[in-house]
């Protein structure tokens, strides 16, 4: 294990640690609310996994500064659509020496966050309903009640 590998991969290891903590909460605890908390931690670690992959060393957020945008608009007024370079033309070679981190993971994770809160709300509503019906939110007590009903 070289030092280069540690520097290049530590972000994944942090994410795996957080993910496994969430997984542990889900499988080790019988309280339903605690399970939802575990799922939330798991979910956030997946967001972090994607976001760390989009990062470029020395990069900045993918928001084009007004100065650069103006210069770009005046330089290519008509043939802007012809500016796509050859395949493999990386982000860091374009935009007047400004390096942008990859915007695509951000977009995917924005969608995932909103969908995640929707599913969390649904799960919490189900827990409230289960509590009304069974009088408990402990998984093993619910199974016990089901067995003897």
């Amino acid at each position: 294990m070289s030092i280069e590998q540690v520097v290049g991969l530590y972000n994944y290891w942090i994410v795996v640690f957080l993910m496994m903590t969430g997984f542990y909460i889900v499988i080790a605890r019988t309280n339903l609310i605690k399970s939802i908390i575990g799922l939330n931690i798991f979910q956030t670690s997946v967001f972090l996994l994607y976001i760390t992959m989009g990062r470029i060393n020395g990069g900045t957020a993918p928001i084009i500064p007004a100065v650069v945008a103006d210069a770009h608009a005046h330089a290519h007024p008509a043939d802007a659509h012809a500016t796509d370079g050859p395949a493999g033309h990386s982000l860091h070679e374009t935009a007047d020496e400004l390096i942008y981190s990859n915007p695509l993971p951000s977009v995917l994770m924005l969608t995932a966050i909103v969908v995640g809160i929707a599913t969390t709300a649904l799960a919490l509503a189900l827990i409230v309903r289960i509590r009304e019906e069974y009088g408990t939110v402990e998984e093993d007590e619910i199974l016990e009640l089901d067995r003897y009903s």
Partner: peptide, 26 residues
């Protein structure tokens, strides 16, 4: 252990799809 390294500009994620869409979006 096989994953592309953190922050490396030559990672596959930064090369495909063609990143010129960042410029074109302007």
């Amino acid at each position: 252990l096989d994953m592309p390294h953190f922050g490396d500009p030559s990672d596959p994620i930064h090369l495909y799809p063609n990143p010129s869409f960042v410029e074109k979006s302007q």
